[in-house]
Amino acid sequence: MIHIHFIVNPIAGSGDNKINIKFLQRYFSKDTYVLVVKHSVYKKHAVELTKESIKEKAHVIVACGGDGTINEVASCIIDTSILFGVIPLGSGNGLASNLKISKNIEQAISIIKKQDVKTIDVGSFNNNYFFSNSGIGFDAMVIKNYEESNNRKLLSYIKATLKSLKDIKYDNEYNITINEENLVLKPFMIFVSNSNVLGYKVSLTPKASLQDGLLDVLIVSKLNFFKVVLFCLLMLFKKHYLLKEVKSYQTKNLSIYQKESNHYDMQIDGEHRIVNHSKIEFSIKEKTLRIIS
């Protein structure tokens, strides 16, 4: 018997998903599968539920939600033999888009049943993990404003972006070390990615791969208001690299240090987080998550 545990974020996306035992039993035969469905009710609850499922000897653990839910579940099962599945229910669904996992629940279930497995890289910083992307600066501000809107739709992203355009500040100077190059700047954005999709089919790192053993990094130095607007427009057409303030890198390691403050406003897989360190060390953990896709 194959034991599959589904960790469901009930408020992901539109918040009206239909994933429960009765629904899943239409697709998984009782003769072959043992199904368990768990619903998260608060932030980081999916971590606790996943650890329970590991103790309960689940063979497959499926994250049903957006990139934040994926992060909480997958962070617990890297470097294990457990297979990781995804049913994308979020608003952006960056990792699922990279893997071409459909937002159609029935199609996503069929992928899980086929169990075609690939082993992917995982991004890491200061003993935390990310699977799609992470960032400091403008994108973190957008996510923070988006979460405060309590509305998980594309229009909310647009409103959050416009608010962030008005509120952007260049207060802290960062020392960045990447590929033996040392940079000192007050950045518009430092974006570190493991996948090639940010969400809503938007990409800042179109050449990124989940299996190349490298992080794709975009460093954007200070922009005036006109160039911020231009950057946002160019980003929609994947032409943001045309600005001279935009530099792209591929690397295995990246360090960021600031002496003015001991915390960072970051976005990690599309969720806002405050990281209380003066220095952040990014690295790549190669081929450490077995994902069904």
Score class of each variant (00 low, 15 high):
Val60Gly: 14
His45Lys: 08
Gly85Leu: 02
Ile112Thr: 06
Gly65Arg: 03
Ile109Arg: 00
Leu49Cys: 05
Thr119Ser: 05
Glu52Met: 13
Lys44Met: 05
Glu52Pro: 12
Ile82His: 09
Thr50His: 11
Asn104Lys: 00
Phe138Pro: 12
Phe125Asp: 15
Ser102Leu: 02
His45Tyr: 01
Glu56Met: 10
Lys103Asp: 08
Met141Thr: 11
Val117Trp: 02
Asp79Ser: 10
Ile120Thr: 10
Ser124Cys: 15
Asp31Ala: 10
Ala63Pro: 10
Lys103Gln: 14
His59Arg: 14
His59Thr: 12
Asn128Pro: 10
Val122Asn: 06
Asn71Ile: 01
Lys55Glu: 12
Lys114Glu: 14
His39Phe: 11
Thr50Leu: 13
Cys76Ser: 14
Gly85Val: 02
Leu99Tyr: 03
Ile136Phe: 06
Tyr33Lys: 08
Asn127Tyr: 12
Ile112Tyr: 00
Pro88Gly: 09
Asn71Glu: 02
Ile87Ser: 08
His59Met: 11
Ile101His: 01
Val34Glu: 08
Val62Leu: 02
Glu106Asp: 14
Asn128Trp: 07
Glu56Leu: 13
Ile112Trp: 00
Ile77Glu: 11
Phe125Tyr: 07
Val117Met: 03
Asn127Glu: 15
Lys57Tyr: 11
Ala63Cys: 10
Thr80Ser: 09
Ala74Asp: 15
Val142Ser: 06
Ala74Arg: 09
Lys44Ser: 04
Val122Met: 03
Ala58Cys: 08
Ser40Phe: 01
Glu52Tyr: 09
Val47Gln: 13
Lys38Cys: 07
Ser91Glu: 06
Ile112Cys: 00
Ile111Lys: 03
Gly66Ile: 14
